[in-house]
């Protein structure tokens, strides 16, 4: 997993290497993203916009408590992800 961020947005890429262009983005494990996203929803957090190609956005309304709730859920999900696999390919869905 790799994190890139700036300003009020960022993302976690489920990939071995930093994504720097489309060809490296193709190495993102979309199945793992889906598992992460679904598991986060089950813990009361919409972690980012819908899609492995999206990012999170924070706002003037977000609080430190919101971040703590997000990270507590992610900690639990990241731990459980070590055991899981879900094959899924990138689909053109525009």
């Amino acid at each position: 997993m790799k994190v890139q961020s700036g300003g009020i947005s960022g993302t976690v890429h489920f990939a071995r290497d930093i994504v720097r262009d489309w060809r490296s983005f193709e190495e993102v494990d979309v199945g793992r993203w889906w598992g992460y996203y679904t598991a986060m929803l089950n813990r009361g957090v919409i972690p980012m916009a819908t899609g492995a190609d999206e990012q999170w956005t924070t706002s003037v309304a977000h609080t430190h408590a919101d971040v703590a709730r997000h990270l507590n859920a992610f900690e639990e999900v990241a731990e459980s992800m070590k055991q899981k696999q879900a094959a899924m390919s990138i689909v053109e869905a525009i």
Binding site: V3, I8, F74
Partner: peptide, 27 residues
């Protein structure tokens, strides 16, 4: 979305990104 407003959202965003990086290292 005044300067202080955007600065607040950025601070929250930075905190979240740092938290992600820490969790990934720890896991």
């Amino acid at each position: 979305l005044t300067r202080p407003g955007v600065r607040h959202a950025q601070g929250i965003g930075n905190e979240l990104a740092k938290g992600y990086a820490d969790v990934i290292i720890a896991s």
